[in-house]
């Protein structure tokens, strides 16, 4: 009983401090959320409200016109719109699946096996977190050209397999898989791959959900414009960005597009938040 009481008691907290921290959260929380609400509200505004003076923050007569116009516009597009949607779904699904399998395999070996070069390899991966992919954009184009992958799905899918952040997070989370569990599987005669796939992988479900979400976020926003030229291979974000570039004439449709692009990753994060937080608890870079 006493132990329980100690656990629920909040230590070292003054009322003043609590009020201060809540005030800060409310203030900055509104700063964070207001533009999002504005974006949502804009998507439902009829055209006259979008160009009203003075502008209004909230929608007065909500309408689905913008979404209807978006679908009409989609129906008129030169390449059927379903094609853009298929392209993005295919690239995202293939890239994400491959990334999870390939990165988990490497993470498993790096964490659970001892072999020459493993430490070096992992430290190179960690170093690669320290620079952005814009640095490698130009040579990447040359590599794609060499491989003859320009203007194919491969140019977007295969590089996604090798995102260093995914390997890093997965390797850190593999620490939580008890070695004894793997050992007993090996004693029962399971091959190393089988041990990895049927024992280790189910244990790290939060981590691969995290990898799925992170790689989804990257691929979902990928316009692929550097590697893809054929209109029928282009992605949904590319097509939607083209609509956004339409300017004033398409302001309403544009607002609907912004909402669509934002709603998907935000909803996915909402659903998977607890798994992601569980994974991120292992995300630290250890200093050794």
């Amino acid at each position: 009983m006493r132990h329980r009481k100690l656990n629920t008691k909040r230590l070292n907290r003054s009322l003043g401090g609590d009020i201060f921290s809540i005030a800060v959260l409310v203030l900055f929380g509104s700063f964070m959320v207001l533009p999002m609400i504005y974006a949502i509200s804009n998507a439902f505004k009829p055209l006259d409200e979008l160009f009203m003076f003075p502008p209004r923050f909230f929608v007065r007569n909500p309408t689905m016109d913008n979404f209807r116009d978006l679908f009409l516009l989609m129906a008129q597009s030169w390449v059927p719109f379903s094609r853009y949607i298929f392209n993005t779904l295919f690239i995202t699904a293939a890239g994400t699946a491959g990334h999870v399998v390939v990165a988990s395999m490497a993470a498993y070996a790096l964490e659970k096996h001892r072999f020459p070069g493993s430490k070096l390899f992992f430290s190179i991966v960690v170093t690669s977190l320290m620079f952005s992919s814009v640095v490698t954009a130009i040579p990447n184009y040359l590599v794609m050209a060499r491989l003859n992958w320009l203007d194919t799905y491969l140019s977007l899918i295969i590089p996604a397999f090798g995102y260093p952040l995914g390997l890093f997070l997965m390797k850190q989370f593999m620490e939580t898989v008890p070695d004894s569990l793997l050992e007993s599987a090996r004693m029962d005669g399971a091959s190393e791959f089988r041990t990895f796939w049927t024992i280790a992988m189910p244990c790290v479900k939060p981590a691969w959900l995290t990898l799925v979400i992170f790689s989804f976020q990257t691929l979902w926003g990928n316009t692929g414009s550097t590697f893809i030229y054929s209109e029928e291979l282009k992605t949904l974000p590319y097509a939607l960005n083209q609509i956004l570039l339409g300017g004033f004439a398409r302001a309403g449709v544009g607002a609907a597009v912004v909402l669509l692009m934002m709603i998907v990753p935000v909803t996915l994060f909402m659903v998977t938040q607890s798994s992601i937080i569980q994974t991120m608890a292992k995300s630290g870079i250890k200093d050794d």
Binding site: M32, P35, M36, W220, P237, M262, P265
Partner: peptide, 11 residues
């Protein structure tokens, strides 16, 4: 949310 919402910064 703002960091994952695609091009919502257009707002």
């Amino acid at each position: 949310a703002p960091s994952i919402s695609g091009n919502v910064y257009m707002i």
